[in-house]
Write a protein that binds this DNA or RNA. Structure first.
Lengths: 233, 233
DNA sequence: CGGTACGTTGAGTCATATCAACCATAGTGG
DNA sequence: CCACTATGGTTGATATGACTCAACGTACCG
């Protein structure tokens, strides 16, 4: 459970212009405003865990969350990240199944929790909302399909190069070119689907080949075309 | 393009009781009836190809279709199968993106093609339909997420055992216990994500361990608990 | 100051890919 | 009817990418 903070109105929320919420009318937004709970979560907190019965979904205002599954031997597999504007947990609400992933906060978050009934009502009464949500799901599904193909066919080296580029696209870099998202070696290995040691060795190979620069968890992309070549993009 | 056959009415279609179509009223069903095109496809035909702009979606009446992506070096990765009652191609219609997978017929098919406008209208005007479709997408997404974790973390041996059990669940067996779906060794390898030779070797290992019996493409499951043990289920 | 989590490096092993040869079957065209 | 070709299946030998295990360094924290 996160910590409750002053409850801001949805009328002033940055997500108001999000494709998903763009089509809501005054009344619908008001309804959400009344029923949502805005909370903060610190780095390391678990928002929900695989197997939990979901009691609504979450809209991320700020921060970064990792979405992962736990494999047979307890090893995490990171499926995706959620950041400002993304929503998580809706899949389980809709399928009415226990959550199939866990979510852990990587960077302190502000998250709005919206009860399940509100989601259902919106889907069934607002066609545009339903359509946008479906678009979102379809996008995720398309990405998942690509991911499957990549993991099945590419080498660890190729996948690491691809993930680095992908992280740059998704989270960007600061002024000096350092990836904004900060991950442990283990987390990187849990995205790529490999052993931590392999990631360490490959990162230092990439560094020797002047593709990246390393400084602890800070990763700077030096040669994007070079990485693309390795990743086969 | 498939071959057109006598156009049956949707009023008598077996898919009428499908969760997705259950909530359609007389008028909506009539509208689909008027606008759908029912076609047959022979084994080996391609219904649509990755990158195609989709001109509607398909509802499978009969037969088996494989849904796959083509990797960098041309190797196929089978993402899923579609059989009676399943629908394919809707993702691209909704995202309004080119198809992200190709589909090839494994067993002669009867397929109804439904134009994109009809899908959109249904989503936006029939909340129950939208909700059921979303459920379907979410189910696929959940399966894709599990698949990612499996491929990333399990060995080829474990995955093959799992796939065999999965094929049994999805397509069943005949009276003698032989899997109803018939796949080439290469197709099996394109599901598991490995080399054809590895599949051949592992299948014959499983056979020696009396887990399965082999006769050409016919695979009989002899020891389901044993396979589950190997698959870590 | 010791403890805990993370990062790094080396050595050895193993699962799986790759390459190559060969067999079986079925369809094709002269 | 036979040679020809294509496709799928099988097996063996060899190479190697990646994992595992183990030791050790580093940094932060109470």
């Amino acid at each position: 459970m996160g910590e409750m903070i002053d409850q801001p109105s949805c009328e002033s929320c940055i997500s108001r212009t999000h494709p998903l919420f763009r089509h809501l009318n005054h009344e619908e937004r008001n309804h959400i405003s009344l029923h949502k709970i805005t909370e903060t979560y610190k780095r390391g907190s678990i928002i929900y865990r695989e197997g939990n019965r979901m009691k609504g979904f979450f809209c991320v205002q700020k921060g970064i969350i990792k979405v992962f599954k736990t494999g047979f031997d307890g090893k995490e597999q990171i499926i995706r990240f959620a950041k400002s504007g993304d929503i998580i947990g809706y899949r389980s609400v809709i399928s009415n199944e226990p959550a199939c992933t866990s979510t852990e906060v990587l960077e302190d978050c502000i998250v709005c929790h919206i009860p399940p009934g509100t989601l259902m009502t919106l889907i069934k009464t607002n066609g545009d909302f339903a359509f946008e949500l479906m678009k979102l799901t379809c996008k995720e599904l398309g990405e998942a399909n690509s991911y499957i193909t990549d993991i099945a066919q590419k080498t660890v080296r190729e996948r690491l190069a691809e993930i680095l580029l992908h992280l740059k696209d998704e989270f960007g870099t600061d002024e000096t070119g350092v990836l904004k998202i900060s991950l442990t070696r283990e987390e990187l290995s849990n995205i790529v689907g490999t052993a931590t040691e392999s990631i360490i060795r490959l990162l230092s190979e990439f560094k020797n080949d002047h593709l990246i620069a390393l400084n602890g968890r800070k990763i700077k992309i030096l040669d994007e075309p070079g990485l693309k070549l390795i990743a086969n993009i």
